[in-house]
Design a protein around this nucleic acid. Sequence first.
DNA 1: TAGACATTTCAGAAAATTCTGAAACTCGTG
DNA 2: CACGAGTTTCAGAATTTTCTGAAATGTCTA
Lengths: 190, 190
Amino acid sequence: MNLPPLVQSFVLHFGEMGSRWGINRTVGQIYALLYVSPQPLCADQIVEALGISRSNVSMSLRELQTWNLVLLKHLPNDRRDFFTTPDDVWQILRTLAEERKKREIDPTLSVLREILMQKPGSEDERFAQERMAEMCGLIERLTTWYDDVKQLDTDRLATLLGLGSRITKLLEAKDRIVSIGRRKPKANGE
Amino acid sequence: MNLPPLVQSFVLHFGEMGSRWGINRTVGQIYALLYVSPQPLCADQIVEALGISRSNVSMSLRELQTWNLVLLKHLPNDRRDFFTTPDDVWQILRTLAEERKKREIDPTLSVLREILMQKPGSEDERFAQERMAEMCGLIERLTTWYDDVKQLDTDRLATLLGLGSRITKLLEAKDRIVSIGRRKPKANGE
DNA sequence: TAGACATTTCAGAAAATTCTGAAACTCGTG
DNA sequence: CACGAGTTTCAGAATTTTCTGAAATGTCTA
């Protein structure tokens, strides 16, 4: 591996974190490299930069494509594939969230729903189903919220993030306004 | 493995998902089993239920303890350790979020900050740093929001989730009120 | 302090994952 | 259609992770 030191630290870190993120070392390194590269890179440049086999690069790029985390570019008069990541980090975040949900949440949700359809054959099964129903309910709440929030454009999303829990102040204010409204429609505040 | 069918499906699913969630099969299975068990279980009961070695159970329980995902209980006149999961799924969610952040986000944030302190030695490094700064900025926004929101009590959190993106309607309403307020202080709405 | 009971540790076996090189395949071009 | 530039596939090697049994450790009781 022969990269500028700052880039190398970043690439190696992504490689190490890979396993915690559910991707492997090479996939992590390639993603990191593409993310910080000023230009799209082709497979051989990645081989060169990371010192890994051509076939490994090919398989890892395929993996990144199934995650929708890389973009394929072509240069005129060049048959090679060049790869980049999207410029917009918010877009990357959305993709990541979507793909992780698909892989880490959705399968569990469907297993839970399926189990909850069945009739418990014993008291222990009845209890287990109750617990699974709680889990299922929570996951449904979270995914409903997610499906809703992901529709927001980035500006609104950023605003919402920036507000954080101060949003509850606003909710309380709303509750006051609404309850006043109910008492004396169209009255002014307090 | 000798479990009621519904419990078995759940346990096996958690085992399979383990690798996607950054834990291993056994850890996943044990967690699932404890989650749906009406009573706390001791290590030997887990060995019995899952058909795995005593030492594997011991190591996996230790792993679950480092995640703060299990509770240790003791019965009177019994030296054995009994394990359960917390009853409250919201509490479980909080723990999970906290531990995943600690393992999956925090290390990257500190690497990014460290790299961003250094002086770029080339144009490519300057560009890479700029990209890393974008990533760092986004992660900081997200973690700030998270640190803020996790303080909320469960009721408020649930309310907020339930609102989803309708929250933006509220924000727009607030903006209108505030701007009206600026034009004519203490006036009533629209 | 011996013994019964329980848990932990750890070296190596077993299993799973990752990585490689060689061969196969694709596709535009002469 | 044969060639060359490029990509993909895949069997097996290398590596990493997980799991086990045996031994060590801990701790309460008599």
